[in-house]
């Protein structure tokens, strides 16, 4: 039994790293622009479909397709922010919600129209490989996906701390007026941010296709999951998003093992309610 619990925890941690990358995209966008991306899960599903398409048509392994998918979603995110979302930066929250809701309806149904309602997965040759460590086994696909997710999160950390653009984005997030005063091109920085956030979730989607089959209606579940993770971790905090991803990954996995799989989200939503009430700034952040 204990072995099972440890095993499930490991599986949860590995999936949680990909969840973390997905939530990171949402957190980056909110942290900088204060816009809640209600089309986040939809972007995740687009990433899954793109990776599947590249695998089916060009035989590109999803792990290698990650940069391509991320680049495509970056371009889409940049364009969306420039053309559509920017006028909505300062309007009331419910109007932002309506805008992104309309976008999410369009995205999901484009997926449905093009790929159909059936599920699509990829069959890589290392699909059933696993590593053994003592009594525990690690699925190769999950290990690769988790490692890639961590690598991308690290690259993102470097981008925000080491590059000029990354620092400018953080400056614009900290003080909008100040950033304008020192001559930063804030609309462009916002567009870059939305692009980076979309690229993160796209990459997470490309990794997720290794473990989960793509289907249009997964989108709403991923959107809600990403919300739960960022709130639990602290909305707008990057380390919080990653830690929240791990926590939710493990809680889902353990609930699936110990209670029943269909009840797993009860724990995620229960945790969300508790965190919102007792620590709305998130579990892993200091400031209120």
């Amino acid at each position: 039994m204990l072995t099972d619990i440890v095993q499930a925890t490991i599986m949860g941690l590995l999936t949680g790293m990909v969840y973390g990358l997905m939530a990171l995209g949402l957190s980056v966008i909110f942290g900088v622009m204060r816009v809640v991306n209600f089309a986040h899960g939809e972007m995740m599903v687009v990433g899954m479909y793109l990776a599947w398409l590249l695998f089916e048509r060009a035989g590109i392994d999803p792990l290698l397709a990650v940069p391509l998918v991320a680049a495509a979603l970056f371009a889409a995110g940049y364009g969306l922010q420039r053309g559509l979302i920017n006028p909505f930066i300062n309007v009331a929250e419910h109007m932002q919600f309506m805008l992104l809701l309309a976008l999410s309806i369009i995205i999901v149904n484009l997926c449905l129209l093009i790929a159909g309602p059936d599920t699509h997965g990829v069959q890589v040759d290392y699909m059933f490989d696993s590593y053994a460590l003592g009594p525990f086994t690690f699925d190769a696909v999950r290990v690769y996906a988790a490692l890639a997710a961590m690598a991308i999160a690290f690259l993102l950390y470097l981008f925000f701390t080491r590059t000029r653009i990354g620092k400018s984005i953080r400056a614009a997030a900290d003080n909008h007026t100040g950033a304008l005063v020192v001559g930063l091109d804030v609309p462009r920085l916002y567009a870059l941010t939305f692009g980076v956030g979309a690229a993160c979730v796209g990459a997470a989607g490309a990794l997720m296709i290794l473990v989960v089959q793509a289907q249009p209606f997964l989108a709403i579940d991923y959107t809600l999951l990403a919300f739960v993770i960022v709130i639990v971790g602290g909305l707008g905090s990057m380390p919080g998003a990653l830690a929240g991803g791990l926590l939710i990954g493990v809680s889902e996995s353990l609930a699936g093992l110990l209670i029943q799989p269909s009840l797993k989200s009860v724990f995620s939503f229960g945790l969300l309610i508790l965190v919102l009430l007792l620590r709305p700034q998130g579990l892993f952040t200091r400031r209120g």
Binding site: L84, P87, M95, M98, L99, L101, A102, L103, S104, I105, I106, V108, N109, L110, C111, L112, L113, G116, P117, P216
Partner: peptide, 20 residues
Amino acid sequence: VKTAGLKQIFYGLALLAIVA
């Protein structure tokens, strides 16, 4: 052609236009 989802795409576009 199969048009599953097409109705909702129109709907989404209309929503987008009204919101904008």
